[in-house]
Design a protein around this nucleic acid. Structure first.
Lengths: 143, 143
DNA sequence: TATTGTTATACTCTATAACTATA
DNA sequence: TATAGTTATAGAGTATAACAATA
């Protein structure tokens, strides 16, 4: 227990801050947190269930339910995989693209605002470090 | 859609990275994510339910269940508030202190390791920016 | 045999609304 | 009346284990 928070505590607290913004932006767009993640992962094209499990870090059975509910809300659709009759391709519907577009714009705006108070040089070096640290992270969010 | 991720995307991806580490460390200590948050919030002493709601960002009814389950696992206990017969004080049990201590050590170690690859100067300035950005964040994690 | 995905089941977490008890 | 907390209910998210269909 020190006066100032250490680097690890800073990371955790920043993370909670981002999660809060993420959750709020999701709700503003009529999405749950998990749905926003799912839709983000599909921004660049359809993916198979197994691949999505890896990106999102959930079990297959969990993903089945997640995709079920997103499909009921017309956010995504399951398509057959022409190359493998066992597999399905999960794709954004037009509604889903619209929702995730609005979400992406909203959260980008709010997070940019969070950084706006920093001096330009500090913001730049912070961004540089962020890029290094997240080099290997799954592409759950890209712009 | 650019070649490199912008600052907002960097923040989101870092956040997912931290959340993953947080969740894994929780499980290693026999805690759920929400339980680890709850116990962290009690590190510096007992708190009332209403105060905890503010820190954790959940509704009272949600907190009732969260505390119920943590109490069943002997992680926390409800104590009467001598100053207000309506209120309860939620406090860590010895088990809870032990669990959150182990969690705290584990996650600090893993996050410090994440930063260990950075040059010392960069690590220091990154930490400085983190501190600025999280100045107003609720004290869900401190060291 | 291995992989893809689903089903069955159980538990955690969350919110809204209605409620009790005390201030 | 307002505040502290609980109960009832419903839905989302998650995991484990067992399963079906295809590779």
């Amino acid at each position: 227990m020190r006066e100032a928070a250490g680097p690890a505590a800073g990371l955790v607290r920043l993370s909670f801050l981002i999660q809060t913004v993420y959750t709020e932006c999701s709700r503003d767009c009529g999405l749950t947190y998990a749905q926003a993640q799912l839709l983000c992962s599909l921004t660049f094209g359809p993916k198979g269930m197994a691949e999505l499990c890896g990106v999102l870090g959930v079990e297959r059975s969990s993903l089945t339910g997640l995709v079920d509910r997103a499909e009921q809300r017309d956010l995504v659709e399951r398509r057959p995989d022409p190359a493998d009759r066992r597999a399905v391709r999960v794709a954004l519907t037009p509604s889903g693209e619209e929702a995730i577009g609005a979400f992406h714009r909203g959260i980008t705006e709010r997070l940019d605002a969070l950084l706006a108070d920093l001096p330009a040089a500090e913001r730049k070096s912070f961004h540089l470090t962020l890029t290094k640290l997240t080099a290997d992270a799954p592409p759950v969010f890209v712009d």
